[in-house]
């Protein structure tokens, strides 16, 4: 074995990409289940859901949609930058992506804390005295946006790992499976939000 040929380590980009997609499918069904519960209760308590949805701030929702869509583009661009051997640009694009994710989370913080001020959180005395449908609406709203926000946080950690890997050269133009699969994860977070936003905020 020639020492200059370092292919003893197992590297299978095709395999890991398929694995990533399989994982993303399970994520789809996880959120799909919640969408189904939402659809059923929205159908059963349409007036309560209508009233609940009016309480949501569609403007913050729209801003967050623009932020997430843009971050999806920057992460996709960072892969192109890695492939073009432009390390500096790739790192900068990843940093922009993380900053956009941070903007999303800060918006989410303001959105939630505004509701908490009015004691509109799951299990609060105010919510428990609302009609049955509105209790369900707030429960689903917090569950769905909360689970989505958790994915945003995990994505931010993944992207941070990628910054260090690109910096150290572990992720490079010949070996970019990690950044591609992290990108796929980030796009899935975007995909889920594309459905969450109109269903929760817009369609009242």
């Amino acid at each position: 074995m020639n020492t200059s040929v370092a292919h003893t380590e197992h590297y299978d980009p095709e395999g890991s990409k398929i694995g990533m997609w399989l994982f993303l499918f399970t994520e789809m069904f996880l959120f799909g289940g919640l969408f189904l519960v939402y659809a059923v209760f929205r159908n059963k308590y349409s007036a309560d859901f209508h009233h609940g949805a009016l309480e949501l701030n569609a403007f913050i929702g729209a801003i967050n949609t623009v932020v997430l869509l843009t971050s999806s583009m920057t992460v996709a661009m960072s892969i192109t930058a890695v492939q073009k051997k432009n390390k500096r640009l790739a790192i900068n694009l990843l940093i922009i992506t993380i900053l956009l994710a941070l903007v999303f989370m800060v918006n989410k913080y303001f959105e939630w804390s505004h509701k908490f001020e009015y004691k509109l959180y799951p299990g609060s005395p105010v919510v428990m005295n609302l009609p049955q449908g509105e209790i369900l609406f707030y429960g689903l709203y917090y569950m769905m946006t909360g689970l989505h926000a958790l994915h945003v946080l995990i994505g931010m950690v993944l992207l941070t790992v990628n910054i260090f890997k690109v910096k150290s050269g572990k992720v490079n133009h010949e070996r970019h499976s990690l950044i591609e699969n992290s990108g796929l994860y980030w796009h899935l977070v975007d995909l889920i939000w594309i459905f969450l936003f109109p269903l929760l905020y817009l369609v009242t």
């Binding site: 999806s72 583009m73 996709a76 591609e180 990108g183 796929l184 796009h187 975007d190 995909l191 594309i194 459905f195």
Partner: peptide, 10 residues
């Protein structure tokens, strides 16, 4: 979603 899948997700 289709656009994201086709282009962003390669």
């Amino acid at each position: 979603v289709s656009l994201v899948l086709i282009f962003f997700m390669h």
